[in-house]
Amino acid sequence: MRLRHGLYALGLACGLLGTGCQKQEPPTVPMDVPVVPPPANTVPREGPAAAAPPVHRVLDAVAAPANAAGATDSTWTTEPVETPRGEPPSVTLRAVRTGTHEGYDRTVFEFDGPRLPGYHLAYVKTPVQQCGSGDDVTPPGEAALEVRFTPARAHDDQGQATVAQRTLKPVLPSVLALERLCDFEGEVTWVLGTARRAPFRVLELKDPMRLVLDVRH
């Protein structure tokens, strides 16, 4: 009898010990969660902002003419693209940045203010000239894509440049370098040295106001 009670007590203790030491499995995450597509009328964030919430709203995609190769996508072109805007006062360029994406390189011009300035984009012959000194500039690559903003400025009220670097050399597949040519009398001009005369497109984004220039690889 004592032996039976001893075995019963030993079994009960082992059972309690096993219950207390039972491993708690962490909750699992279902593997069939559907992927939520980004909202319509959006484009991916660029550069370091890519890890931020997913998209910027597109204000306008410039309807450019078909390129010389007869491309049916009207947003890509090798022809000049122009959107004129007059007064009120000029807006200030605050940042210029570049990055590469699948199939194209992106350059972003960011401005203060509630709207973008007028702009003109076109492939130009080289060398191009600095507007102050008249010095010749020959960007690297086989083509030069000029971006002109007006009315705009790239300096503050004290005359200090708002974009410190006047030359950028990202050496991307298409965009090899950028150089500021002009910041004078309401005109700001940059030139991109590109690997070839590739089709490009223009997007206007807001919050903050940006002009986005994509150049195909």
Score class of each variant (00 low, 15 high):
residue 1 M to F: 09
residue 4 R to W: 07
residue 6 G to T: 14
residue 9 A to T: 12
residue 11 G to I: 13
residue 12 L to T: 10
residue 17 L to G: 14
residue 17 L to M: 11
residue 20 G to M: 09
residue 26 P to G: 11
residue 28 T to I: 12
residue 32 D to M: 07
residue 32 D to E: 12
residue 33 V to H: 08
residue 34 P to E: 08
residue 37 P to T: 11
residue 39 P to C: 08
residue 41 N to I: 07
residue 43 V to Y: 04
residue 43 V to A: 10
residue 49 A to W: 01
residue 51 A to R: 14
residue 54 P to C: 05
residue 55 V to E: 09
residue 56 H to R: 15
residue 59 L to S: 10
residue 59 L to W: 03
residue 61 A to W: 09
residue 62 V to W: 06
residue 62 V to F: 04
residue 65 P to Q: 03
residue 67 N to H: 12
residue 68 A to S: 11
residue 77 T to G: 02
residue 80 P to S: 05
residue 85 R to M: 07
residue 87 E to P: 15
residue 91 V to I: 05
residue 94 R to P: 03
residue 101 H to K: 13
residue 102 E to S: 12
residue 106 R to H: 00
residue 109 F to K: 01
residue 111 F to N: 08
residue 114 P to Y: 00
residue 119 Y to L: 10
residue 121 L to R: 06
residue 121 L to V: 15
residue 135 D to T: 05
residue 142 E to L: 15
residue 143 A to I: 11
residue 151 P to G: 05
residue 151 P to Q: 03
residue 151 P to L: 00
residue 155 H to C: 00
residue 159 G to R: 09
residue 160 Q to M: 14
residue 161 A to G: 02
residue 162 T to L: 04
residue 163 V to W: 03
residue 164 A to P: 04
residue 167 T to I: 09
residue 168 L to Y: 05
residue 169 K to T: 13
residue 172 L to K: 01
residue 173 P to H: 10
residue 180 R to K: 12
residue 183 D to A: 03
residue 183 D to R: 03
residue 185 E to T: 00
residue 186 G to I: 08
residue 189 T to C: 06
residue 190 W to P: 04
residue 195 A to S: 07
residue 195 A to L: 05
residue 197 R to K: 14
residue 209 M to Y: 00
residue 212 V to H: 01
residue 212 V to G: 00
residue 213 L to C: 01
residue 213 L to F: 03
